[in-house]
Structure formats: C-alpha cells, structure tokens
C-alpha cells in the first residue's frame, strides 16, 4: 500500500510539473502564433492582388460575412482592397479535401467577378506531384477566369483548366473549391459589398 502511494505521488508530481511548464509556454507563444497565422493570410491576400501591392492609398480591410438566410449561420472572413471609398477587390478563403489532407486556398476577385489570383495557404499533398499545385504555372491560369465564360472542368474532360500532371485529384480539388467560392461570392455579392463599404479600419500588417 505504501509503495502504491509512493508511485502515485511521484507520477502526480511529474505530471503537475509538466502541466505547469506547458501552461507557461502556451501563454508565452499564444500571441506570436495567432500573429503568424494572421500574417500568413494577409500575405496571401497581397499575393492574389499583385497589381495593388504597395500602391499609394490602397488599404486592406477585413470583415466577417454571415450567411443568415440559409440558417446555417456559417460565417466567412472576407478581405477587401479599398482605395478611398471604392472597393477594388475582394479576397476570401476556401478549403477542400485534396489527396493528402485539407487544402486552404485564398481566392482574390476583382471587378466583374473575375479572379485576380489564387494562392494555396496550406496543403499536405505529395511532394513532387500534388504539391506542384503551389507552382506559379498552375496558379496563373486561374487569373481572369470567371463564372460565365469559363468551363470549370479539366482540359481532358472538355473544360478550361489545365491540371498538374500526375495529380488529377489535387487539381480537381483546387478547381472545385475555387469554383464553389466564386459561386458563393456571386450569390451573396450585394451583402458582402455592403460590409466592404462600411468597414473602415485597415488591417494591421
């Protein structure tokens, strides 16, 4: 019995020590981690609007848009590029399942609901194959694609999107996610733009 107590006490002491040090490190790194994640998204927004980066008087604002009508209360973060009071572009994040896990993509839309650019934020596709979706060559073809004039299918299925060779699943996943994002945006454009005009506070970067 005494032996048993000793074992339990020693284990408890070790676990308490571990918990204390973890709590300390967690508190220390909480801020920097949140900051890094935000920075990554802001960089992605800048990457999908290369034409506006660094231009004088252009600001980035962000706002949460909640789709109340459907009742799902799903909210999405939208980023707006504004000059004076005019909204030059809107960026939003879409997520999808690829071949190796979730793929997160930032999609930028400028006037007439045409894509300004896309950027993969996170993915875990196979290096050398699926991971090639992060290459500029694959990104570029999405520029100026839109809902009305583009056939959202792979070239081999009679569509307008070139796939990454050897990575059909990853390519389709990105294509569909971008397409769905565009559909959502065009369905809710009025509501989203209303938010864009109201928000004034620029994003810190």
């Amino acid at each position: 019995m005494r032996e048993l107590c000793r074992l339990a006490i020693v284990l408890t002491i070790i676990c308490c020590g571990a918990a204390l040090s973890l709590a300390y490190v967690y508190n220390l790194t909480k801020g920097p981690i949140a900051y890094q994640q935000r920075l990554k998204k802001i960089r992605a927004v800048n990457a999908v609007f290369p034409q506006h980066e660094g231009t004088q008087g252009v600001q980035m604002v962000d706002s949460l848009y909640c789709d109340d009508e459907s009742g799902t209360a799903s909210c999405r973060q939208f980023y707006f590029i504004k000059q004076d009071r005019e909204v030059l572009g809107t960026a939003f994040e879409v997520a999808t399942s690829g071949y190796g896990g979730t793929i997160e993509i930032m999609v930028g839309v400028s006037g007439e609901a045409a894509i300004s650019g896309i950027k993969i934020i996170n993915h875990s596709e196979t290096p050398g194959l699926g991971a090639n979706i992060t290459k500029e060559q694959f990104y570029q073809q999405f520029t100026v694609k839109n809902l009305t004039d583009t056939k959202w299918d792979l070239r081999k299925d009679g569509g307008d999107i070139d796939q990454v060779s050897g990575a059909t699943i990853s390519s389709i996943a990105v294509m569909q996610a971008v397409h769905e994002g565009l559909v959502f945006f065009s369905d809710h454009e009025d509501g989203i733009m209303e938010k864009a005009v109201r928000v004034e506070q620029p994003v810190e970067s």
């Binding site: 571990a18 040090s21 973890l22 490190v25 967690y26 790194t29 920097p32 981690i33 890094q36």
Partner: peptide, 14 residues
C-alpha cells in the same frame, strides 16, 4: 511529450 509540445509551440510561434 512535454518537451515535444514545447518545441511544437515555439516553432509555430517563431
């Protein structure tokens, strides 16, 4: 595992 979690958090932050 305590050290692994510390490494994980510190790497994510810095």
């Amino acid at each position: 595992s305590t050290f692994v979690t510390i490494t994980d958090l510190v790497m994510a932050a810095y």
